[in-house]
Amino acid sequence: MKSINDNAPVKCSKTIAINASSEKVWAVMTNIDNWANWQTDISNPKLNGELKPETTFDWKTGGAKIHSTLHTVVPFKAFGWTGKTFGMFAIHNWTLTETKGQTQVSVNESMEGFFATLLKKSFNKNLEKGMQNWLNLLKAECEK
């Protein structure tokens, strides 16, 4: 897995426990074209090929169009991508660990670039809020 940039001005890590198998969580998380049906912050997600490293996908969040490239696709364990928008570069990683029918989902992201440095405080606050929302929505979708 490609590591996040620990020196980036914007970064966040969050974890949540989901009462579902890692297979179920994986199926929801990696169905990129379906994200907008449960992830209310996202619109127009489109995977441009197969679910494998180097495949790109495009999506919108917070009004920004993002072009991303998958870097890690390890079924039921790890999923990650890099993304670019407005001169910023992000690394986004998900890790799944199943224990006794429950899946621990950890997410880490770093953002760097001119605006990330300039607006560090608000970007960190927004990233933390957005990431917690994503985890809460993923939990709700997987526990249906």
Rank of each mutant, 00 (worst) to 15 (best):
K65R: 13
G113Q: 01
T95G: 00
F89Y: 14
M29S: 07
A90D: 10
L51S: 06
W81G: 06
G49H: 09
T117C: 01
L70E: 09
V107N: 06
F79Q: 04
P9C: 02
A8L: 07
K125F: 05
I18A: 01
E50A: 15
A64Y: 08
N108I: 00
A8D: 09
S13G: 06
F89S: 13
S13H: 08
S13Q: 12
A27Y: 00
A20N: 05
N48T: 06
H92I: 04
E23F: 02
N44R: 13
L119N: 03
T40A: 14
I18K: 01
S106H: 01
L47E: 04
K24D: 02
K14Y: 00
F86W: 04
P45Y: 11
Q102D: 00
D58T: 15
M111E: 02
A8V: 07
I66K: 04
H71Q: 11
T61Q: 13
M29A: 11
T103M: 01
P75I: 10
D33N: 15
N124F: 02
K46F: 11
G87S: 08
G49D: 12
K24S: 08
M29D: 09
M111V: 14
K11T: 08
A17G: 00
T82G: 12
M131N: 12
G87Q: 06
E23L: 05
N31V: 04
M131I: 10
I91Q: 09
G83R: 09
N48E: 15
W35L: 15
F76I: 13
A90E: 10
I32R: 01
K129N: 03
G83L: 06
F57I: 11
L51T: 03
F89N: 11
F76G: 02
K84G: 11
D41I: 09
C12A: 13
D6Y: 08
L47F: 10
V105F: 00
L118A: 10
S43L: 11
T61C: 09
W35N: 13
F76V: 14
T15D: 00
E23W: 02
K121H: 10
K60S: 13
L118F: 11
T56K: 15
E98A: 02
G101L: 06
A20P: 07
V10A: 05
C12T: 11
S122W: 03
F123G: 00
I66M: 09
M29Y: 08
G62Q: 09
I42R: 03
T117W: 05
S21N: 05
W81T: 05
Q102L: 00
A116D: 03
Q132V: 04
G101K: 07
K100H: 07
L118M: 15
V105M: 00
K11F: 02
P53R: 12
N108M: 09
Q132R: 07
A78P: 02
S43D: 15
T69E: 12
A36R: 05
T97F: 00
A78T: 05
T61L: 10
G80M: 03
K84W: 05
E50G: 12
